[in-house]
Design a protein around this nucleic acid. Sequence first.
DNA 1: TAAAACTAAACAAACGTTTAATTAATTTAT
DNA 2: ATAAATTAATTAAACGTTTGTTTAGTTTTA
Lengths: 225, 225
Amino acid sequence: MFSFKRLFSFVSEMRTPIEYSEKQIAIINAAEKLFAEKGFDGASVRDIAQEADVNVAMISYYFGSKEKLMEAVFEERTVNIKLKVENLLQDKSITPIQKVNILIDDYVDKFIHQQQFHKIMMREQMINKHTPVAALIHELKKKNLESIRTLIQEGQKTGAFKKNIDIVLMMTTMVGTVSQMLTSQHFYRTLNNMEHMDDMEFQRHIRKKLSTHLKNLFKQMITNE
Amino acid sequence: MFSFKRLFSFVSEMRTPIEYSEKQIAIINAAEKLFAEKGFDGASVRDIAQEADVNVAMISYYFGSKEKLMEAVFEERTVNIKLKVENLLQDKSITPIQKVNILIDDYVDKFIHQQQFHKIMMREQMINKHTPVAALIHELKKKNLESIRTLIQEGQKTGAFKKNIDIVLMMTTMVGTVSQMLTSQHFYRTLNNMEHMDDMEFQRHIRKKLSTHLKNLFKQMITNE
DNA sequence: TAAAACTAAACAAACGTTTAATTAATTTAT
DNA sequence: ATAAATTAATTAAACGTTTGTTTAGTTTTA
């Protein structure tokens, strides 16, 4: 009576994606969906197993525990979540303000395309416990912030940007606005009489709305008029 | 074997506060704290009872169920949560932009002073179910929005404000920025080397920060330069 | 034929809620 | 005013479910 349990670690530097089987992926997808909908405690392992069309025991078998399954969801979904600032920074053909705009679009896109996972992240940040998942989020945010800081400093050197920019506060507005839109999108939809739209169309709409809105806000925050 | 159970209803027009006993208030306070910390499913009735220093059975006895206790928390905390726009609107001695600024301060204050409850509200909005609590939030948001819409329209009539203002998007940025600050205040604190500050001082700091920041953003969004 | 994948059943612990009994407070009757 | 009667408040224990996890066995794969 032996059982094979997949081992993985939370190494953030040069993390390599883990190759999961079809069933394992089905479990991770189901977990992501239900954790996003009902929260970690609200979603039972039996719920998840049923959603993934898999025996309950498979969750412990493959992931060890419910907690570890959550970590696997994070591991899987954060592999390529980093903003594409690295390449952006070296590009001399585009202006700093254009780079910032690209970054905004990149962030909004990532958010829209990973709504479920971002809901989970928002919930986990609220809990404020010292879990591996919390550490991962913290690290992720810190890295994103550093990248943006470099980008802003570049703009400041050329004189295109203001001197005193509160980058954390600025990011708070970006992340907050997009999160709030995600959280209250049903409210936004009914209020603007957009129930007739199909989901894809509506997603495109708020994507464009957020992008334009944030670009305007950022322009005001970082440039000298 | 009879038991007295307090009845209350979710009438939003002219809601009258319910007079709770000391123990009932203790339960509501404990519930608010633990629901905010761990979420509805994460906080058990035994946790809550212990925090309130009360027998577990008292929760069912006074409130009927855990679900109803949550409703009682909402009932209790939303009684005087409406923004003070009504009186503000009639005041002719202050300009529309001043009114908007007062409103921002009012909102930030309410948020800062009711952080636990706002965490609960954020969580409940994410769930997106058709519960009494969700209906209450929806109604609350709608009313706040209508008040602000009136205020904005007043400014537009005098020519002080722009014509095309997306009020919902504007509110999304206000609520989102403040919520995000609440969610990630620990992150903000460590990043700005403010761990040495005591909590009260830090609260004052982010209150001022948010206030100034939002006023700048709003000015840009609603005025003609 | 050995290892891995998979299953139904069982596990103990925790869950929200109810019960049955007791104590405390309030009302009614004398 | 005091005793009796009634109602409310409070408790420990038990209720039946559901929880996450493990076991022991079976099927599948290599």
